[in-house]
């Protein structure tokens, strides 16, 4: 059985037995070539489910809308780390989520109506093709995974501060503050985001470079040590802002300083949620 057939069979079984009320997976989009999220509530509808290299959406975000309700989710390795993040941060209960993990072939670059054969950058750099946790696995688990590398971040670090500033100024100047990055991000679930707070006012409502700069940097810092690298923010950004570069820089720093990667398990306390007396990180070193 291929991945799609296994997912359809599992979803049908879970819904028929009443183990879950809903299976969140993918179906074909209206352009005929891409995928879109699908919520299946009836076993008869499980046949619509698909899985292929266009299933780039991280469905973990949707678990936040189904708190306390038994839900199965089709999850790639990065999506599974998002589920772990949400469990670790007490947003989702492990026993309400049934993870249909998928051994991931990597997702490809797509546009509306077009699918390429080129892997997405995040997938090209990803070293984890088998989910770290699952209740049911689709596909054959691979060998030991290689260590994560950050060639994109290294290229950025090689530039001078002035060059980096100019680069980001130009990128952020395009931001239209739609907040699609936040809405797609599994780590952005605050009931009131700082961007909408009035008191204190963190950032004004202008859609202009000065405010966009604050918005994008603050959001990046809120994801430091929490971003699981699914790259949804960049995928959904209508202005093609390379947000993953910021997130991956912070991921790299967190890994180097604390030996921590978000979502690898659901228990290890996050560095920015803990304080240890023996930590003596000299500022600016």
């Amino acid at each position: 059985m291929n991945a799609t057939e296994q997912i359809v069979a599992k979803a049908r079984e879970l819904l028929e037995s009443g183990t879950v009320e809903c299976v969140i997976g993918y179906e074909r989009a209206t352009d005929g070539v891409n995928a879109r999220p699908l919520f299946v509530y009836q076993a008869e509808e499980a046949g619509k489910l698909i899985f292929d290299q266009t299933c780039a959406h991280n469905l973990a975000k949707y678990l936040l809308n189904r708190k306390g309700k038994a839900t199965a989710i089709v999850a790639k390795p990065c999506d599974v780390r998002a589920v772990n993040l949400l469990i670790n941060e007490h947003q989702v209960e492990r026993d309400k989520v049934l993870i249909i993990g998928v051994v991931c072939p990597g997702m490809v670059e797509t546009k509306w109506g077009r699918v390429s054969e080129k892997l997405r950058q995040a997938c090209e750099l990803c070293r984890e093709h088998t989910p770290v946790v699952y209740d049911f696995l689709v596909g054959e688990p691979g060998d030991e995974e290689a260590a994560v590398e950050y060639p994109d971040v290294a290229r950025m670090e090689a530039l001078s501060i002035e060059e980096r500033r100019a680069f980001w100024e130009e990128q952020f100047s395009r931001c239209i503050r739609c907040y699609a990055c936040r809405q797609a991000c599994p780590g952005c679930y605050c009931s009131e985001c700082f961007a909408e707070r009035l008191d204190p006012l963190w950032v004004g409502i202008r859609i202009a470079p000065s405010e966009s700069w604050i918005w994008n940097t603050m959001r990046a810092f809120h994801l430091a040590g929490r971003c699981i690298g699914c790259n949804q923010c960049e995928r959904v950004c209508p202005m093609n802002i390379p947000l993953s570069l910021l997130n991956r820089k912070l991921e790299k720093e967190t890994l180097e300083l604390f030996g921590y990667r978000a979502g690898v398990d659901a228990e290890t306390p996050a560095p920015f949620a803990t304080f240890r007396k023996d930590e003596k990180l000299e500022v600016g070193e």
Binding site: K61, Y62, A180, V236
Partner: peptide
């Protein structure tokens, strides 16, 4: 709406959406 992210992209790309906030 199950799958909607409420991300505003549709309104911001749309030539006819005209809502605004004032501060």
């Amino acid at each position: 709406a199950d799958r909607c992210l409420h991300c505003n992209v549709c309104s911001y790309v749309c030539p006819t959406c005209y809502c605004f906030d004032v501060r």
